[in-house]
């Protein structure tokens, strides 16, 4: 079968089709959707989600799941505030290092628990989700932090444009960081031996073990990568909202999880792509934005995402596991 046809039949292909439909529909039915200002703010508002999404993608590919990353990002923010305080300021470079390292540390806690106790990741990360959040609320006493280093809250634009009517459109630094995170993750999972081993481990752990794949390393890589993305996402989130609020990110994990699953990452491991992940986040973002512009109740958003997940999961089961094998049987019979 030609490659193009096969790509069209994938989750990614169909999701792209749906997104194009939505894009065209919203452009025609509202005047505000297809404007530079709206599209750039869409990117700004979803940059952090996509940073987390590519982290979560790596975990899903390796056959795991992580519920704790959004709360972990809050923990990173608080710890970073403390560390920058000790350092007497800090700068962007140190910001990435500190947040990345703390994030990796939190991710490794998950990895060690999962691998050490041989407990499935959903159980462990629900536990760490609660533990992280409890500790955070306890030590912060629920207080937000507004006094932050200037470098951290100063707006940095990587793109600015003023239209004839005087409306400003701009892209935040977070969008640039997002692009970098996506690229690096893409290289990891697609072009390195470690990435291919992650797929294998998620696909058939026993076979991977027999082939000599280092299972502990895979868990550490997947959850460490997720942790690093959680930390970087946390850092950029502060740059956008200019405050650190303990429960600001609570609940975001499900939105991101929905986006990644919609993008074709398989719960259970072994399948998922960067393209799908981007499209999944785009789908969620455009849905939210479109409902807003059309003036529909925000509660409809949750229903639509829920329905989309059901459709995605049931249709992928139908056409991925049964149809191809029927095709294979036919091919064999035709020989």
């Amino acid at each position: 079968m030609p490659r193009v046809l096969r790509e069209l039949g994938t989750v990614e292909g169909r999701l792209l089709f749906v997104i194009i439909l939505m894009f065209v529909g919203l452009s025609l039915s509202t005047d505000s959707f297809l404007t530079l200002a709206n599209l750039t703010s869409l990117l700004n508002n979803n940059a952090v989600n996509l940073i987390w999404a590519v982290g979560l993608l790596v975990v899903l590919i390796a056959g795991g799941i992580d519920i704790s990353f959004a709360v972990a990002a809050s923990v990173v923010q608080y710890l970073a505030v403390y560390v920058f305080g000790l350092m007497g300021g800090g700068n962007w470079f140190l910001g990435f290092v500190v947040c990345g390292v703390i994030g990796i540390g939190l991710g490794l806690i998950n990895a060690v628990l999962i691998h050490g106790f041989r407990v499935i990741s959903i159980v462990i990360t629900i536990a760490t989700f609660n533990a992280f959040f409890g500790l955070l609320m306890f030590f912060s006493s629920g207080r937000s932090v507004y006094l932050l280093p200037d470098w951290w809250t100063d707006r940095i634009f990587i793109f600015e444009h003023q239209s004839a009517s005087g409306v400003w459109s701009e892209l935040n630094l977070a969008v640039g960081v997002m692009v970098a995170c996506v690229l690096v993750t893409w290289i990891l999972i697609r072009f390195t031996n470690l990435g291919r081993q992650l797929y294998a481990f998620g696909d058939n752990p026993e076979a991977a073990r027999r082939a000599g794949v280092n299972i502990a390393l895979m868990q550490a890589l997947a959850f460490g990568w997720m942790g690093m993305m959680a930390g970087i996402g946390g850092l950029m989130q502060v740059n956008i909202v200019k405050e650190v609020v303990p429960n600001a990110l609570y609940g975001r994990e499900l939105e991101v999880l929905a986006a990644v699953v919609l993008g074709g990452a398989r719960l259970g491991g072994g399948r998922g792509s960067i393209l799908g992940c981007i499209l999944g986040v785009m789908f969620v973002a455009i849905t939210q934005n479109g409902l807003n512009l059309l003036g529909i109740s925000p509660f409809a958003f949750n229903m639509i995402i829920g329905a989309a997940i059901l459709i995605a999961i049931s249709s992928s089961n139908l056409s991925f596991d049964i149809r191809p094998s029927r095709r294979a049987v036919l091919q064999e019979a035709a020989k």
Binding site: R196, A200, A207, N214
Partner: peptide
């Protein structure tokens, strides 16, 4: 002990992927 979601070629050549040190493939 194969990998159901990987391509035939990748399954056959999988052993060259194994290793702890990162490497481009």
């Amino acid at each position: 002990a194969l990998f159901p979601h990987m391509s035939v070629a990748e399954n056959i050549a999988f052993d060259q992927m194994v290793g702890n040190l990162p490497r481009f493939v």
